[in-house]
């Protein structure tokens, strides 16, 4: 039904100003950002820390209200959070009183899916994120990487129109992070979900994406929109190929300028 010319998500001239208080000055966090995300696209937003990229994602999720501009999902303007935009947070967002499978079933329960079907779906997603055998574990009994896999499964089980990820691997060690990237990419290749992924890691942004959006340091604007033309499926060792390194050099340059600017301002 969806024609290629209609974006899955349209971000239209979104501005976010954090209102000042006696102690803090007003901050322009997101400055007139427009972005069309097509169905099945995997977009990473790359930016220095504090550039407003997370704020932008939270606006798309409906967890933050934009000061002006619009966000559309399938042509309909969105207000507030909803299960059609699934979200994976940086860390510790699992419900600690629920087991792995109960966490994954949380959204399905809200939808009124019957218990037997819920169990089936949960099993499927537990397998997808390779956590078979851990269904009855509580989040506290899992490592950070496993917790984030549950968070991804929980968001996907709800079958959202778009999956939003806010630096989901940022708190993980390097080795785990690499494996998680491969897993997420594999899931995307299988399911063809539309994904918007926030990161400050250049390599991560290239490895995962069809398109990398580079944001400027505060106020956050779109600085560059770079299509990544690497083949799929992408093996982990693609990171050492000349094509990949070219992208890496280009993006590192772009992001470095912004980081320097941010540092200058911090002085």
């Amino acid at each position: 039904m969806m024609s290629m010319s209609n974006p899955k998500v349209r971000i239209d001239n979104v501005v976010k100003v954090f209102s000042g208080s006696r102690k803090h000055a007003q901050v322009l966090a997101v400055d007139h950002v427009s972005l069309d995300i097509m169905t099945n696209e995997f977009i990473t937003i790359l930016g220095p820390s504090g550039c407003g990229k997370s704020t932008l994602l939270r606006i798309v999720a409906g967890l933050e209200e934009q000061s002006s501009g619009h966000v559309y999902l399938d042509g309909q303007e969105v207000h507030g959070p909803s299960s059609n935009r699934g979200m994976v947070f940086q860390a510790y967002s699992l419900f600690p009183w629920l087991t792995v499978e109960e966490n994954i079933q949380f959204g399905l329960k809200n939808k009124g899916v019957i218990a037997a079907r819920r169990k089936e779906i949960a099993k499927e997603y537990v397998e997808l994120v390779r956590l078979t055998g851990f269904e009855k574990h509580y989040p506290k009994q899992l490592s950070g990487g496993m917790q984030q896999r549950v968070a991804i499964a929980r968001a996907l089980a709800n079958d959202p129109e778009i999956l939003l990820l806010d630096e989901p691997f940022g708190a993980l060690d390097n080795q785990t992070r690499t494996l998680m990237q491969e897993l997420l990419l594999e899931i995307w290749e299988k399911s063809n979900k539309t994904i918007l992924f926030i990161t400050h890691d250049v390599e991560e942004s290239i490895f995962l994406a069809n398109r990398v959006i580079v944001m400027t340091s505060r106020p956050g604007r779109i600085k560059a929109d770079i299509p990544i033309e690497l083949e799929h499926p992408r093996p982990y060792n693609i990171k050492t190929t000349p094509r990949f390194l070219e992208y890496k050099e280009q993006l590192t340059e772009l992001i470095r300028e912004e980081s320097l600017k941010a540092m200058q301002e911090a002085k």
Partner: peptide
């Protein structure tokens, strides 16, 4: 934790839910 509330909202829980 705020994240828990926000996660629930994005999983379809209502404000009072």
């Amino acid at each position: 934790r705020r994240e828990l509330l926000e996660a629930a909202y994005t999983l379809g829980t209502s404000t009072f839910g």
